Amino acid sequence: MAMSAGDIERLIKEAIPDAKVTIRDLAGDGDHYAAEVVSESFRGKTRVQQHQMIYEALKGKMGGTLHALALQTSVPD
Rank of each mutant, 00 (worst) to 15 (best):
G6D: 12
D18A: 07
L11R: 14
K61R: 15
T73F: 04
G60I: 06
P76G: 08
R43K: 15
S41H: 01
H51L: 08
A35H: 00
G44H: 08
Q50F: 04
D29G: 10
G30T: 12
H51R: 14
L11N: 02
M1I: 10
E36R: 13
F42M: 05
E40K: 15
T73A: 07
Q50L: 07
L69T: 04
D31Y: 05
L26C: 13
K45N: 06
G64C: 11
S39G: 06
R43W: 06
V75R: 10
A27S: 14
D25F: 04
A5W: 05
A27D: 09
M3F: 02
V38S: 01
L58Q: 05
D7P: 01
A35T: 05
G44R: 09
E9H: 02
D25G: 06
V37D: 00
V38N: 00
H51T: 12
T46Q: 03
P76A: 12
G28V: 10
P17L: 02
R43L: 10
T73H: 08
Q49N: 13
A2H: 11
E14M: 10
A5H: 04
E56Q: 14
Q72F: 09
I8D: 00
R10D: 06
M62Q: 02
D7W: 02
K61I: 05
Y33D: 02
G30W: 02
D25N: 05
S41D: 04
P17D: 00
L66M: 11
R24T: 14
A15H: 05
G60C: 02
Q72C: 14
V37P: 00
A35K: 01
G30H: 03
V21T: 09
I54S: 00
K20D: 07
R10H: 11
M53K: 09
A2C: 12
V38H: 00
P76C: 11
L11V: 02
D18I: 07
L11I: 03
D77H: 13
M1G: 13
G63V: 14
D25R: 06
Q72L: 14
I23P: 03
M53A: 13
L71K: 02
L58S: 08
S39R: 04
T22D: 08
T46E: 01
A35G: 03
E14T: 13
V37N: 00
K61G: 03
L26N: 11
K45M: 13
I12C: 05
L26K: 10
A5E: 09
S4G: 09
R43S: 11
T46F: 02
G30Y: 03
K13R: 15
K59M: 06
V48P: 02
L58Y: 05
M1N: 12
M53G: 04
K20T: 12
H67M: 01
G30N: 05
S39L: 08
Q50K: 12
M53R: 08
T46V: 07
M1S: 13
Q52I: 10
M3G: 00
E40H: 12
D29E: 13
V48N: 03
D7H: 09
Y33M: 07
I12G: 02
E9P: 03
Q72S: 15
H51V: 10
A70W: 07
S41I: 06
